[in-house]
C-alpha cells in the first residue's frame, strides 16, 4: 500500500491499525514502509479521505483483500 501524502490529512488512524506496524507518522502524515507492508489493505479500508491505494506489488493478494473483490461470488475459484 502507498500513501498519497498530498491527500493524507494526518489523522493517524492507519498507524495503529496496521497489523505489521509498517506505518510511520512522519511530519504529521502517514508513511508506509514498503519492506514491512504485506498489502493486506487494512489501512486502505480505514482511511477516511481515501488517501491510501495499492501499489500493486502483489496484485492477486491485493484483489482478494479488497471489499470490492471481483471474485467474491465466484464459487469455482479456490
Amino acid at each position: 500500500m502507498v500513501v498519497d501524502r498530498e491527500e493524507c490529512v494526518g489523522c493517524g488512524a492507519c498507524v495503529n491499525l496496521c497489523p505489521r506496524l509498517a506505518i510511520r507518522f512522519i511530519d504529521n502524515k502517514s508513511y508506509i514502509d514498503q519492506v514491512s507492508c504485506i498489502e493486506c489493505g487494512t489501512c486502505r479500508e480505514s482511511c477516511g479521505v481515501e488517501a491510501i491505494y495499492a501499489g500493486c506489488r502483489f496484485p492477486d493478494i491485493v484483489l482478494l483483500n479488497f471489499a470490492n473483490n471481483p471474485y467474491a461470488d465466484d464459487t469455482t475459484t479456490i
Binding site: 490529512v9 494526518g10 493517524g12 498507524v15 507518522f25 512522519i26 504529521n28
Partner: peptide
C-alpha cells in the same frame, strides 16, 4: 506521541 506537533488536530 506519534505526532510531530502535539497540539495539531487532524482527527475529526
Amino acid at each position: 506521541d506519534i505526532k510531530k506537533d502535539i497540539p495539531l488536530i487532524n482527527r475529526s
